[in-house]
Design a protein around this nucleic acid. Sequence first.
DNA 1: AAACTGACTTCTC
DNA 2: GGAGAAGCCAGTT
Length: 104
Amino acid sequence: MKTSFQELVYKLSQSIPPGKVATYQQLARLSRHPKAARAVGMCMSRNQHPEIVPCHRVVASSGKLTGYAFGGVSAKKFKLLQEGVKFIDERVDLALSQWQPDLK
DNA sequence: AAACTGACTTCTC
DNA sequence: GGAGAAGCCAGTT
């Protein structure tokens, strides 16, 4: 089943450039549902198109990889590493790799 | 309509 | 920074 909220979240995730990551809350804020970070995560977990929706570029605010429906966090981490995302142990180095959407 | 769930976030200790 | 608890949300049952 698809909902308007999901489509919005997917669309936003698609605007995340390679080598960068966004937090669930970040997407929630961009979707005008500033406190729906949790709901955003749910959409990703139900995502069925990893090739279309780069849900692997979405991490928790702490930089932790909270989950990935295709291969687990291991695969997620690997994919991010391939794109050049900086890691600090098991967490993304948000200071260097967090996506900064253009504010206008 | 109500309760439950989960890939969240923030606060306190 | 980590463990525990509470708040918040959309979706599912």
